[in-house]
Design a protein around this nucleic acid. Structure first.
Lengths: 140, 140, 140, 140
DNA sequence: TTTT
DNA sequence: TTTT
């Protein structure tokens, strides 16, 4: 069934690259997508959309995008469910990115940058507040 | 910034029509959008996407769509935050539908159907599990 | 670069299935997509969008869709150029469909229907008014 | 019916701003949208998509975008028909842009630039190769 | 909390 | 938990 999402926004953090137990790459990041209209109080508004990328694209994302980078995402909406530490069922809606366009990068992929890239923690550590991803979330 | 979602799916329930304190119409419904591929266990899968419609379109949705209706939605992704009964902050991602296409309706808008249409409870009762919507979620 | 099109409309004719010299399947069809608003004279309006599908999907389209079928298309916009019989250069813009959703079929894929399915003429005959497609239009 | 297009690309020329006889603003421009994959000969490829914007947005486009600017477009596909100078009927497919995102501008809207902005020729002169637009192409 |  |  038709399920399509297209977004342009800025990363709120460096992307987070992990590996599933079977060695598949997954990167997660959040896009801040500014709204056209400000709210009643005259404040600019943004939506914060969680995005997930798999395989080779995950590595490209981790290599070329940082906090603040402008990116376009073309993908589909997905819902997942998981149990938080208190055992409560949590419902999440996120974008599975099928293609990502790098529109503007602050730091041009130089290594050794002071704000340590947020990756390679090994699988599924919880240094991030992004909803945890398990092996069987891998699409097809 | 670019923010576009297009979906085709079936309503999991009758839509829920409410009115804000200031008299604006809001309807909410959930679309089951079937995935192309089944999972490892060979089960068909679906994503369940919460949708919100405002104003006149909210009334049309409430009048023409029921549980099981097939509908197309064109809109944008939005994130909101609210506190649940236990005071815990909850993050939701949903689609603000800007246009809705009625593709197939089971019961042709006849009134008096046994499974009582789920609307007109007055503002913001909690007979539904849809994330509560407040006046200032009204777009522009 | 981001390039995404999503349409829902009805086929103006049976789809046309061909084979390239190298044996690749290509189907072409035109979608009538109704506009929301009528024109100054109060007439309902439609846009007529040419769509192209390749490989296995081309066969599915030829098997499951007929004139009048309602279909959803997710794909990308493409421009091509070719020379018409009078040698004049013609520019066409069409949709390369990457996925097609069958929403409603008039005749349920029964064979032997009176208005002979418009396919298998061999490559690139001109029984159709659809812009001719050549081998190297095959995407990747 | 669902009809949605989202593109990111670069303007092939300065936008062309006109006024209809009734004083409505229309701007036209062509977006070069690069393809991901190169062709058999290993050449990078692009699609050239004609876009039309009306009213206030037309003026913003004319003011903020130049040849080479990177822009995102969210709109719908439209087909039109007109007769060329030789009296031959021509079919065009183009994007009616409903919102345009300015992603990068070469020259920051400074006036007095040497390559004279291509606008204000009065209605429908033919200094451009863009398919001519008539008053009744104005959407609603 | 899920639709055909 | 939020970006320019």
């Amino acid at each position: 069934m038709l399920n399509r999402v297209v977004l342009v926004g800025r990363l709120t953090k460096d992307p987070d690259l992990r590996y599933t137990p079977n060695g598949h790459q997954v990167a997660t990041f959040t896009l801040a997508v500014n709204r056209t209209f400000s709210n009643q109080q005259g404040e600019r508004q943004a939506d914060f959309i969680n995005c997930v990328v798999w395989r080779k694209l995950a590595e490209n994302v981790a290599n070329y995008l940082n906090k603040g980078s402008l990116a376009g995402v073309d993908g589909r909406l997905q819902t997942r469910t998981y149990d938080d530490k208190s055992g409560k069922r949590v419902y999440v809606t996120e974008v599975i990115a099928e293609s990502v366009q790098f529109l503007e990068s602050k730091k041009n992929n130089q290594s050794g940058n002071q704000n340590q890239r947020n990756s390679d923690h090994g699988p599924f550590s919880d240094t991030t507040d992004f909803p945890p991803i398990s092996e069987d979330d891998l699409p097809f």
